[in-house]
Design a protein around this nucleic acid. Structure first.
Ligand SMILES: [Mn+2]
Ligand SMILES: [Mn+2]
Ligand SMILES: [Zn+2]
Ligand SMILES: [Zn+2]
Lengths: 141, 141
DNA sequence: TTCCTTATTGCAACTATTTGCAATAACATA
DNA sequence: TATGTTATTGCAAATAGTTGCAATAAGGAA
């Protein structure tokens, strides 16, 4: 669980605290490498810290997302999933078979600039999910 | 409630039925012109059809979205909202003050084509929400 | 108009997520 | 190392959304 040592300073710098709960949640997300639902995170976290509650998991996930340590995404089933905030990327997901693929944010950089220029907004988030049909499922149409 | 007359054939053509519940829900969404949450839709629908249940509202909204009559969106609070499926568009939303603005899909058309070419996926959905800072809130940063 | 099939609804029970509040514990300071 | 402040947690209760199933009713066919 050494990985959480890297995150503590980020929290302290903002006046927040590192706790066993936050450590274990970061640990779980950090080492999974994929999108995890709150309930899966809870189950895994519980193995290392049996007393942890679901309430804390939900609250911590939102807190970590707010502070840029993790990133949330809607993958189409209506429920949020979380992952460590690493490289900026987006997702493509097939409406039929559910297969996913990642898209580098650099592919959207031009669009983001266009949108910023056209709207005056400064875009801060980048973790979108585009839906469509994968090459395989297009055949069946 | 005449507006629902237009929707009935679309449902029948697919083997589905038009019901008072679907009528009133479509009516509510059609005449609102903005994004509505399931609970707001339920409250409004109830005024016209007192017996309707929340379960039916949730189920109907998903059904209508699946069949292209309405469109759902995540506007950042974790809850889905719905609107009539009219012109294709996306949204820009300020993380601080919550102000929103619409973006025509045509602005993203080029990107969509790029993504399709690069990935092989055929993109079907277009109702995204981009988050950032509105011109006004940028000043305070 | 009446009948029949089956899509749709309502109910009740369940799972998921949020919120208020008092108890706890992180960590800055002395 | 001991102390005080207050960020954070756990609990319980509330709200939001889902699911199985039997009763109902839309609408095609007779
Ligand atoms: Mn991702
Ligand atoms: Mn919209
Ligand atoms: Zn597919
Ligand atoms: Zn703003």
């Amino acid at each position: 669980m050494t990985c959480s040592a890297d995150y503590a300073p980020q929290l302290r710098a903002r006046g927040y605290r590192m706790t066993p709960q936050r450590m274990v949640i970061l640990h779980v997300i950090h080492h999974s490498g994929k999108h995890l639902s709150p309930s899966v995170i809870y189950e895994k976290a519980r193995k290392e810290l049996p007393g942890i509650t679901e309430t804390t998991v939900y609250r911590t996930l939102e807190f970590l997302a707010q502070n840029g340590l993790v990133r949330s995404a809607h993958m189409g089933n209506g429920h949020l999933v979380y992952e460590i905030a690493g490289h900026e990327h987006h997702h493509l997901k097939c409406r039929i078979c559910g297969s996913e693929m990642e898209v580098e944010h650099s592919l959207l950089a031009k669009l983001y600039h266009q949108l910023e220029t056209a709207s005056g907004y400064q875009l801060t988030d980048s973790h979108l999910t585009f839906f469509g049909l994968c090459p395989n499922c297009q055949k069946g149409e």
